Amino acid sequence: MNNIKINHAQKGFTLIELMIVVAIIGILAAIAIPQYQDYIARSQVTRVVGEVNSLKTNIEDSLNRGATIITGYSDDLTVSPIQIALGYDSDKSNLLDSTAGTNGMAVTDGATAAPTIEATMGGDASSAVAGAVVTITRDASGRWNCAVTGKTDGTDGWKDSYAPAGCPAS
């Protein structure tokens, strides 16, 4: 008698197994992509808050010198009181809207002890945060406040959770 066993082992995957894998990948992607986009938006807002907050030292120095704070690249020492530029170059941040203010920044009340600096997000910023404004203000007693104002153009995408804890959305 001939006892030859023929082994018909499965080779490869069945169509249903492949479809299940594709469905699982699709579900994971549907969850992961929006989370990733939120992470990018939050990190961009946090970065701009850090960049704007780094100007506080220059502002304090200017106020101690009795100077007026202005945006731009160079100081004007020929006027009284002297004008000290923030020295912020828009080329340093690709997340600011270079068409807003000067270099993406605007200074109000720069001649007082309570200046306000506003940075408008744009440029390479995520569409969810482009148009948001980071504002730091100093009161006359030297306390600093920070706030982030979401996009004002009415488009969807902005979430208050994009603002870091130390600079809440307003």
Rank of each mutant, 00 (worst) to 15 (best):
L63I: 15
G122D: 06
A130L: 10
N64A: 14
G26I: 13
I24S: 01
N94P: 03
V49A: 01
I6G: 01
D156T: 14
Q37W: 00
G150D: 09
A67K: 06
G50V: 10
W158L: 02
A140K: 11
I20Y: 07
T46W: 01
P81L: 12
L95R: 08
S62I: 00
A111T: 03
D91G: 13
E17V: 00
I16F: 04
A113P: 07
L77V: 10
M105A: 03
A32Y: 10
G50K: 05
V129G: 08
M1D: 13
S170Q: 11
K5T: 13
N103P: 03
T155L: 12
T120G: 05
Q37A: 12
L28K: 05
T135N: 06
C146R: 11
G50Y: 11
V21R: 01
A106G: 06
Y36V: 09
A85S: 14
A163Y: 02
D139H: 10
S98V: 15
M121Q: 08
G66Q: 12
I33H: 08
A30Q: 05
T68Q: 15
P115Q: 04
Y162I: 10
D153F: 08
S170M: 05
C167Y: 07
T99F: 03
L28E: 04
E17C: 09
T152A: 15
Y162K: 06
D97V: 08
K5H: 07
L86M: 08
L15D: 08
L96E: 05
N64I: 03
Y162G: 08
K11C: 06
S43I: 01
S90F: 11
Q10R: 11
G110R: 01
E118V: 14
S62F: 08
T152P: 00
I70S: 01
T57R: 12
I20E: 02
T99S: 15
G150S: 05
A9D: 09
T137W: 04
N7T: 02
V107S: 01
G150R: 02
A106F: 03
I16E: 04
